[in-house]
């Protein structure tokens, strides 16, 4: 990724403390006219000065490559994996990566050997729904002495999606929509007979997670039970006329999750979009994406 033109260099809090110590040494040295104290003063000053190019060059030929962030629901956490690559011929140490303004913390990599890369995952709260820009990454380092910090900026045009926060009534709407699938069929949903497991979908209820499998070290799985399914469900934005736009989107998001969990085909109808009934991960994300990108403030 292309970095800003020049790395910036600015003092840290440690520098203030150093200045205080140097001031004390200078004061004592000039007061006592003591060459020994002058030697100490100049020694510390020189080491500090020499540490500046070390810090400055600690980010030379270090670059980053952000990967794509998985979408998350509003109020949850976005995790954005970033690869920090050290293209130089020496080990780079003490490198921090931060996305200012995202509310996330500075991530620290203690060392990256020459020619290798390190992967850090920036985590920060997902704000409001919609498509958000990642913004500018800041790569910093205060190695080796911590008196100055070097800063390299990497502007990114990358975006991530924040789905609406699911909330509202978890029960799926009962009315049958254009009963395309009117005949009863056995589908996976809520019932008594265990019918296997499938991968956990972010945002869905944790009630059916197979915790025993988790305890064995396996990934999160949701247990599914065979139930008499009721055919496909039609999720219509305009049918929820009594709620505000955001509440409606939240309700729809919750229903999408619920329907996906019980594996009931669902269709989604928004004022400008119509998605045919289906089930599955691609459909699930497609629906949520549409909900996420629904123009703000638009009335039904």
């Amino acid at each position: 990724m292309k970095a800003g033109k020049f790395p910036l260099l600015y003092p840290t809090a440690g520098f203030a403390a150093l200045l205080f110590v140097l001031g004390a040494m200078w004061y004592a040295a000039s007061n006592q006219n003591s060459p020994a104290v002058y030697l100490l003063l100049f020694g510390l000053t020189a080491v500090f000065l020499v540490s500046i190019p070390h810090t400055l060059l600690n980010l030379a030929d270090v670059t980053i490559a952000p990967e794509s962030a998985k979408p998350a629901f509003a109020g949850e956490e976005i995790s954005l994996p970033v690869e920090i690559m050290n293209c130089s011929r020496t080990t780079r140490r003490g490198i921090g990566l931060v996305l200012p303004g995202s509310g996330g913390e500075r991530k620290r990599v203690d060392y990256i050997p020459a020619g290798k890369a390190a992967r850090v995952t920036l985590r920060f709260p997902a704000g409001r729904r919609g498509e958000r820009r990642v913004g500018t990454f800041r790569l910093t380092s205060i190695y080796p002495l911590g008196f100055v910090r070097v800063l390299k900026r990497f502007a990114s045009s990358q975006t991530y999606l924040v789905y609406p926060k699911p909330s509202g009534d978890p029960r799926l709407p009962s009315h049958r929509a254009r009963s395309l699938h009117s005949r009863p069929q056995t589908e996976l949903g809520e019932g008594d007979d265990f019918a296997g497991v499938r991968a956990y979908v972010t945002g869905e209820s944790q009630r059916h997670i197979d915790w025993r499998a988790v305890a064995r070290g396996q990934p999160l799985m949701t247990k599914q039970f065979a139930a008499e399914a009721e055919g496909s469900v039609h999720l219509d934005f305009s049918a929820l006329g009594f709620l505000g736009v955001e509440e409606r989107l939240s309700q729809l998001a919750l229903w999408v999750i619920e329907a996906e969990r019980v594996r009931r085909p669902y269709s989604l109808r928004l004022p400008n979009t119509d998605i045919a009934p289906a089930v599955g991960e691609a459909h699930f994300h497609r629906c949520l994406r549409v909900l996420s990108l629904f123009p703000e403030g638009e009335r039904a």
Partner: peptide, 28 residues
């Protein structure tokens, strides 16, 4: 302290220190 959990023997930070000191010597 700033090396954090970098692997390697404990005296490696001394090597960096010597490098800094050697470079600082002419300035001193």
């Amino acid at each position: 302290f700033h090396r954090g959990s970098s692997p390697g023997a404990f005296w490696l930070s001394l090597a960096t220190t010597f490098k800094l000191l050697a470079q600082a010597a002419p300035l001193v």
